[in-house]
Amino acid sequence: MIGISVENIVVDIPIYGAGSRSLKNNILSAATGGALKTRDGDKLSIRAIDGLSLTLNRGDRLGLVGHNGAGKSTLLRVLAGIYEPNEGRIRTSGRIAPIFDLGFGMDPYSNGWDNMLLRGISLGLSLGQTREKMEEIAAVSELGEFLDMPLRTYSAGMAARLAFAISTSITADILLVDEALGAGDAAFLEKAKQRTDKMIKDSGILVLASHADMMIQQWCTHALWLEHGKPRMMGDVDDVLAAYRNAVASA
């Protein structure tokens, strides 16, 4: 049974850059009385998600909308199991694939084939699984003999195509996508769209965070509007997007 169930989760992201991470500051703050003290006494943190509950079942396609910093990416990372929430419960069942940064894991000094393996590993595939998909990825990328060349010799568009072809080759029950699935030049776009459609249709559940209304309208059945980590509105895609746009325009 594929599903996601989230009950009342709270995620606090500690901020260490301000200095509390170093031992010296921990010691000095004791000596100076600690002017920067906040909530937890000596810890500065941001509440990225504040009391969110959510249930998703097979066939659900949820779009996340909201300002930068509203908690969209954090929510995706919680659903992926990367961040464990500070409060509340989360239960997921099904194979999860997080697609956050298309090119992540790739190495400019390796050739296209090795990059398929590198990117495959960071997507959580085994070497064997990636090797089985290599021919297909090569065909989709349309890079031909360039696959034998190091990635740093590729144009930006070619690198994007390879990254796209690899990332969209995975099959998963729960697909978590952050921002656009960019795919290079115009000639490639139609093919990219078909492939993305297929990947999304094959998945049991989709959660997509995006600032592009088009993407949300195209692929999602309903939407969740997040504001300061809190759910502001959830429902039909067009209703939520309309309300969100209104709020943005009047702000």
Binding site: P85, R89, I90, R91, S93, G94, R95
Partner: peptide, 9 residues
């Protein structure tokens, strides 16, 4: 099938 469960307690 992989099931993951996290709870704050």
């Amino acid at each position: 099938m992989t099931a993951i469960e996290h709870s704050s307690s």
